[in-house]
Design a protein around this nucleic acid. Structure first.
Lengths: 207, 207
DNA sequence: GTCTATACTTCGATAGAC
DNA sequence: GTCTATCGAAGTATAGAC
């Protein structure tokens, strides 16, 4: 997890065992998916035995729920923060460009939680997914509002369905977890490609 | 499966048991993913017992490999065929629009195999995936060539990375398996949205 | 070709010692 | 808090009758 801690915790123990388990789970879920990651896999990565994990979590489902929620929370927090730091008068086009860059950056080089979230979401237990949808809806709402902002300002055509458009944009980026390789691609180029596609499409309209 | 059969087969038995198993597998894999679909689930859907399946297939892996390959083959065949039926002189923009429409149509209303393919690809066994990549690369190559065609004709800017662009476009569409609901959305609107995004982006360049 | 019965394995989870 | 030992539930796959 490695999020905000009390000063005392930060002083003596850099991360709690609970958080170390979650960190390992996020990385392993990202790499192998949910079903193929066993409690023993998590324990081995931490030089522990599987039974010890049950002192910190009551079930595998509790772990996956934490990883899912933290994954969405992290990308949302980073994107929100990046946009908040822009001058007040920037237009929707710039804001969406920043959101694209930040989303891809968190997904591929900042947070195992977000990458794990994208991978394990479809195979997570039904009741876990049900509760997790609350977090996802908040993040979706943020994107939809960015697009609506552009529509109000006349930057984006009124005929654009903001719900759908945001799904295609975020989906295109999330799908990159299936093909992105740091040895072949780099995040800057990917960001430019998505930003350009969203800004002006693939085709040159000019003469 | 339900693909081409000999005349004799078509006459007396509309589909072989082997193909009925594959059809059921495609639908169940699409709905529940690979790990959560048991041999018993497949058998139940066909009013059979799990053991009977092993007369037709030697393992669950053999089934998933067939479903994966057939999934890519079907969408590829349909898209290729749709474009082949266009007049010779249509430009890349029209061709890509047709490819988008056909891909979404196959994915959401034509083939459980293609939808299953998109869902179970990340959790399929490593050696199965390895062999399946051959099919995927053929389909990818087709999309990349469509984009290169547009670049050669001057319709698409030379700076566009065709490999990446095709991944983002196909990825945006494939991701829709995670949110598309026939009760809320319709495939025509989705096709229009993707086509518009690819053609001219989200933002109005003009005055 | 399909069945019943069952072998074999893996994995989540618990009990209880240390 | 972590360990060893083990239970119990699934689930893949096989053996052999019909």
């Amino acid at each position: 997890m490695r999020k905000a801690q009390t000063l005392a915790e930060a002083a003596e123990s850099p991360t709690s065992t609970r958080d170390r388990i979650l960190d390992a789970a996020a990385r392993i879920f990202r790499d192998k998916g949910y079903a193929d990651s066993t409690m023993n896999d998590l324990a081995s990565a931490l030089n522990m035995k599987a039974a010890s994990i049950y002192y910190h979590f009551k079930s595998k489902d509790e772990i996956v729920e934490q990883v899912l929620n933290e994954g969405t929370a992290r990308v949302f927090r980073s994107v929100k923060c990046a946009i908040a730091q822009l001058p007040d008068d920037v237009n929707a086009k710039v804001k969406i460009g920043v959101a694209i860059r930040e989303h891809l950056h968190v997904l591929h080089s900042d947070s195992d939680y977000t990458a794990a979230n994208v991978r394990i979401f479809p195979e997570a237990p039904t009741d876990v997914v049900k509760r997790h949808m609350f977090e996802r809806r908040l993040y979706s709402k943020f994107w939809v509002e960015l697009i609506e902002l552009g529509k109000k300002a006349g930057e984006i055509d009124q005929s654009v369905d903001a719900e759908m458009a945001h799904m295609f944009i975020v989906g295109a980026m999330n799908w990159s977890t299936q093909w992105y390789s740091p040895k072949i691609h780099n995040i800057e180029d990917m960001s430019d490609a998505v930003d350009s596609l969203v800004s002006k499409g693939l085709f040159t309209s000019g003469p």
